[in-house]
């Protein structure tokens, strides 16, 4: 589904990714771990199509398409979803209105008719349960005045609404207490199917107790230096990153 080959990326002439390779298939969960500044969030941003990054070398193939040639909204329409590490606030637009626009734009791109208000509301009610988010929160401006946990739950709620093929969770566990973490993990597990894939970017192993990854990759200094199964995450938790570097 996703094939990243020898990816080199820089921001303002700082090289961040230096030859990254990654292959993700349908039905898989990949965890990418690494210390601060190793390039984890850059990887998420580059897959989602943020503008300010410069690809110096390498390629990303997603569902047989050259991903780097697509704009951010085209990628979203092709089923790529990014749960942001720091979800932005947008004043004056309710989450409901926002997600409705998004759902219908994605439907439109697939030649489907927009959802009418009633069916939209029905779908929304269903998905709200998954992350235990309530109507009042969704009728407020996007993320404005939300707590850290509410913002992250809102991200997973939007993920549920958009039903992506490839979801990237960028440090979704950061700033969550244990209850919120469980809710988020439960949501992600529920949305998992044999047709979609998930990339979890995280600093700690904590979240991986609740979402069991098929693969764990260690990203250090812009490269994946070690890959393994879920046991690798536990090893990292115990020993830290230095033993790999050495």
């Amino acid at each position: 589904m996703l094939e990243i080959k020898n990816l080199h990326v820089s921001v303002n002439n700082n090289k961040i990714l230096k030859g990254l390779n990654l292959s993700v298939n349908k039905g898989e969960i990949h965890a990418i771990m690494g210390p601060n500044g190793s390039g984890k969030s850059t990887l998420a941003s580059i897959i989602a199509g943020r503008k300010e990054y410069e690809v110096n070398q390498g390629s990303i193939i997603y569902s047989n398409k050259k991903l780097l040639e697509l704009s951010a909204d085209e990628r979203a329409k092709q089923g790529i979803f990014l749960a942001f590490q720091y979800p932005i606030e947008i004043p004056g637009i309710s989450t409901t209105n926002f997600i409705k626009t998004a759902v219908n734009k994605i439907r439109e791109s697939k030649g489907k008719k927009p959802l009418d208000a009633v069916s939209f509301l029905k779908v929304m009610k269903e998905k709200m349960k998954i992350v235990k988010i309530n109507q009042t929160l969704l009728s407020r401006s996007i993320n404005e005045g939300f707590s850290g946990g509410e913002k992250k739950r809102n991200e997973i709620f939007q993920m549920a609404m958009l039903n992506p093929k490839l979801a990237i969770l960028d440090e979704t566990d950061s700033g969550l207490d244990i209850d919120a973490l469980k809710i988020v993990a439960k949501g992600v597990n529920k949305l998992k199917s044999k047709n979609n894939a998930t990339i979890i970017i995280t600093h700690y192993q904590r979240l991986l107790n609740y979402i069991i990854p098929d693969y764990v990759h260690v990203l250090i200094d812009g490269k994946i230096v070690k890959s393994g199964d879920k046991n690798l995450a536990q090893e990292l938790e115990k020993k830290g990153y230095d033993w790999i570097r050495a």
Binding site: A48, G49, A72, D73, R75, A76, F84, I99, A102, Q158
Partner: peptide
């Protein structure tokens, strides 16, 4: 970017 990422 947030809007674009959601397909808008």
């Amino acid at each position: 970017f947030y809007c674009l990422q959601r397909g808008i």
